[in-house]
Amino acid sequence: MSIKTSILSSIGQKLLLATSGLIMFLLFLIPHMGGNVLFLFGPDMFNSYAHHLHQLVPIVIGIELLMLTSISVHMIMAFRVVLANRKAADKRHTLKSSKERSLAARLMPVSGIMIFIFIVKHLLDFKFYEKAKTTLHGVETYDVYAMVLSRFQGDPVHLVFYVLFMVAVGFHLSHALQSSIQTYGIYVPREGSKIKLISAVVGWGMAATFAIIPIFAFIK
C-alpha cells in the first residue's frame, strides 16, 4: 500500500479532514475569538488590537494561506467522504437511528455548508469593505470598531443571520472536536465521556462567544 493509497483510504481521508479542521480551530478560531472579545472593551482596545494585527502582516498572510489550504482540503475531503457514505448506505426503507446518533453528528454536512456560506459573507462584510480612519494615541489607523457597529446597528436581519450561523458553528464544533479525537485513535467512549462533554462545552461556548459580538454591537 503506497502513501498515496493510504492518504486516500477511508481512514486517511478522515485524518486529513480532522487535521485540517483542527488547524483551523487552533490557529484561526481561537485567536479570532480572543480578538473579537476585545470589542466588548470599547473602541480603543479593539482598534489597537486591529492596528497591532496589521503590523504583523507577513504572519497574517502566512496564516491566511494556511487557512485557505486547510479549508480547501477540509471541503474536498468532506465532499468525498459524504458522497462515498451516501453511496455505501443506499436504499434503506425502515432503518431507524438510535438515540446514540446526535443531532450534531447528523447535521455535519449541513452545518459545514452553512459555515462556508457564512465565511464568504463575513469576508465581504469586514475584510473586503472600505474602512474609515481614526486616530489612536496620535497614530492614524482604521476604525474597525465603528465599522462593526455600523454593520449591525439598526439591521436586525443581519444580526439574526450572524447568530443563526453561529448556531451552525456550535453544532459543527461540538461533534467535530470529539470525533477528530476518536479518528486520531484516542478512545472516546459511548457513555459518560469527558471528551464528549468538553467537546460540547468548548464548541457551544465558542459559538456563544462569537454570537455575543453582533448582539452587543446591535444593542449598543
Binding site: 477511508s10 478522515k14 462515498a84 453511496k87 446514540e100 446526535s102 461533534h175
Partner: peptide, 18 residues
C-alpha cells in the same frame, strides 16, 4: 484489511456509534 474494506464500497466511519 482497510484497503479491502474501501475497495468493496463500505462507507467511512463518522463516529456516530450506531
Amino acid at each position: 484489511m482497510v484497503a479491502k474494506m474501501d475497495e468493496l464500497g463500505f462507507g467511512n466511519c463518522s463516529n456516530e456509534y450506531e
